[in-house]
Design a protein around this nucleic acid. Sequence first.
RNA 1: GGUCGGGUGGCCGAGUGGCUAGGCAGAGGUUUGCAAAACCUUGUACGGCGGUUCGAAUCCGUUCUCGACCUCCA
Length: 496
Amino acid sequence: MKGSLHLYNSLTRRKEEFKPINEGFIGLYVCGPTVYSDVHLGNCRTFMSFDMIYRFLLKFGYNVRYVRNITDVGHLLDDGEDRISKGARKDKLEPMEVVQKYTNGFHDMMDIFNTLRPSIEPRATQHIIEQIEMVQDILDNGYAYVENGSVYFDTTKFAEETGKYGKLSGRVIEDLLAESRDNLKNQSEKKHPSDFAIWMKAAPEHLMKWNSPWSEGFPGWHLECSAMSTKYLGKTFDIHGGGNDLKFPHHENEIAQNEGACGCSPCNYWLHTNMLLMNGKKMSKSDGNTISPEELFSGDSPHVSKGYSPMVIRFFMLMAHYRSTVDISDEALQAAEKGYKKLMEAGRSLKQLEAHSAEAGKIDEQINSISQSAFDDMCDDFNTPKALSRMFELVNIINSLKGGQLDSKELSSRGLETLKQTYSSFIYDIFGLKNDLVDNDQSKYLDGLMNLVIDIRQSSREKKDWDTSDKIRDVLKELKIQLKDGQSGTDWTIDG
RNA sequence: GGUCGGGUGGCCGAGUGGCUAGGCAGAGGUUUGCAAAACCUUGUACGGCGGUUCGAAUCCGUUCUCGACCUCCA
């Protein structure tokens, strides 16, 4: 399939045609999690969005280097303490134990949500040398100053000389001056409130610190992404992504650092995913407006009436555009669950379909047109809700062929092949969905058993022994297995 | 207060000048031994008020309202 890819660039605030720096290759950097506690659902949404984007870029034919970092140092809390250090003290663990524990948890959750692993997953603490070098470059270029062992980025000077500070987030430096809080740590050391630390001198009790030309300390939070993206993708690469809430100050400062260090902008396209809401508000741990992935799976939360499978959640998120907020609610999840099942059932039915015609008929045309449309939708800034709606058009065709409402003579074997390919390409490869209700190791036993049961029930029905056949149906129903009698025999589905 | 983004039928959610997605729920029908599933039909939707236009949910103005960021956040 052919098309040109357009994506919404947060920097220019409009859709632009995507042109890679090197034909056929894409450098993609996404800001990963800070591993100081269990992943929360909001993070999952962001990484599922970028997973979908990564998958589509691959499908489009690009060779993608997908870099997603792990932040394991340098993230300050309000009181100035490192998040990892704080976690270490709390759990009586080595900082690196904290990091490992939550990194493992993060990876497990990403697997559960069926996301592809990034090509490189660099950690901040493994790139202290690169970060120190970048601080030095920024100092050498005159965009930073040393104060009492810490190094601060000089935003005023950078803004005056380049005019590039605040461009991404639409901020003006004078406004920042007026609005900044004055209770930040080390505020007095800064020349300007909007200046930010690129190297911090560590307090004696600080657990994670390294030697540097300026002090024994640790790198500023924003610096790691600048240093690691440069290292693995080059000074200027194609796409940088992250959650909307990272736009300011994180991404804004990243741009400043890269510009300050090498005089070039870090990337050509900025992609930002929108927030996951609950009850109309951003999901966040601090105010209790949150539900963990585990709670959502088990249903053990006042926010949901039952549990939802990981794939239902993934499907639910794909139903909204990545740049829109998603408000999670029990009602919406229930609707998503039904839609998801319908989609998966059609996938199973599709396997059994047969085409008899050698010549392309009307249905062939429809399939070709829907396939192309779905591809075009994805090319238009990854419009998953629209592309998904095309999939439901395919579902309708599949079910109609199966049910006999559509004449399979109108479909050539080649058309059927296209249908199967399109379906699997979008549902499994691009959207990253899988049938988590039946696709597991036990499914072959279950299939065999069910075939037997269905066979026995069919015999009863032929003898008009409704008592037996209805009993089989009712008992299975209690076991959450639903039988579906169709024209071409009986099917079944797990009704979780 | 500053910056940015929303408000679409009962719910979720695309669309962004005329062709009026899709899912869920509801109604009627076909099918079925009965159901379920599937299929078919069915929706006076675009926050309010003005304006531009032959024509606006879509553009402009204004107003109300919700949210995000401005402090760590995906």
